[in-house]
Design a protein around this nucleic acid. Structure first.
Lengths: 160, 160
DNA sequence: TTCATCTTGTAGCCATAGCTACATATTTTC
DNA sequence: GAAAATATGTAGCTATGGCTACAAGATGAA
């Protein structure tokens, strides 16, 4: 049992395409993964700064659902990446690049949520799914969401 | 500088909500992350089995864009999770639960792609974004996608 | 000012997910 | 049937992203 098809055939098929198109997609998604956390952090820092006047390690930990240890280490990497400025025992500040990233994320997040809401998805689920989806929405797809929202708005306007 | 707001105020605000709603969302998404790889693997195994007659480690590696070592180790975990049956140096087979999971993933994937296509997103981008998005689409959101597709189809029918 | 409390930092553990290098099994080819 | 090629397996490295436990700094109150 477990008999194989002839290896010849398989090799021809596989050898002809040493890389599937999917392989590159998967790789890309894995790369995006690394960015996700950075995006979540800068977004949270921006939000906390706006809300509480400053972002601190404990606040971030609570917000992100991790311990302060995890926050600490991630902040170290964000600092190396140039997204935040931190000093020991002091509040966390975004750099220019961090602020820019946070801006983009926020806009994208809001667009995704609004788009899901326009499909009659409940606010709670829209918020939650957006959190997972937003990191994988390309420029083209985001633009399509915006188009759809604009069309829906136009529809509402014309129907009253 | 870097003056803090009064800690009192912060503590009250933070203390009142030891857990933000977002924290649970983030935690959930991290949990989903663990499933993503399992889903990608069973889907690839199902697809390769259908296409080539069997799924082998090298094929999976090529398809997923990783080395055979990574495939091997992940398969070990999938075997523990009861999704696949493997024997050394033999092809990989899905168990009943693996097959079921693959089925679900495939349907969801196709739905997401079709939905994105219906927004005039190019096939290439739709495929790629779907790969990242699909793992974070809840039942409710998936249902909304299906609704939208049905409505679009009805619109086309009635307009010709 | 000192003491208690809260916050931040550090050491070091675990699991996942990638890798290279090397060893072994299987398959194909001659 | 032996050699070459391919596939699979294993050892052990890296980085990420969780954690607990403990140490040390900062703040607020007595």
């Amino acid at each position: 049992m477990a008999s194989r098809t002839t290896s010849k055939a398989r090799q021809v098929v596989a050898g002809a395409r040493p890389e599937t198109r999917q392989a590159e997609n998967f790789r890309q998604i894995r790369r995006e993964h690394a960015h996700e956390i950075a995006e979540d952090y800068v977004e949270a820092i921006a939000d906390l700064s706006a809300t509480l006047g400053e972002a601190r390690v404990v606040d971030l930990a609570r917000r992100l659902g991790v311990t302060h240890v995890t926050v600490n280490r991630t902040l170290a990497r964000l600092r190396e990446a140039g997204h935040v400025n931190t000093k020991p025992y002091r509040a966390i500040f975004l750099t220019e690049s961090g602020r820019k990233l946070a801006e983009e994320c926020k806009r994208r997040h809001q667009t995704v949520v609004a788009f899901l809401r326009s499909l009659d998805i409940s606010e709670k689920v829209a918020e939650k799914d957006a959190e997972g989806i937003e990191h994988h929405v390309s420029q083209e797809t985001l633009a399509a969401f915006v188009r759809h929202l604009a069309a829906a708005a136009a529809g509402i306007r014309s129907s009253r």
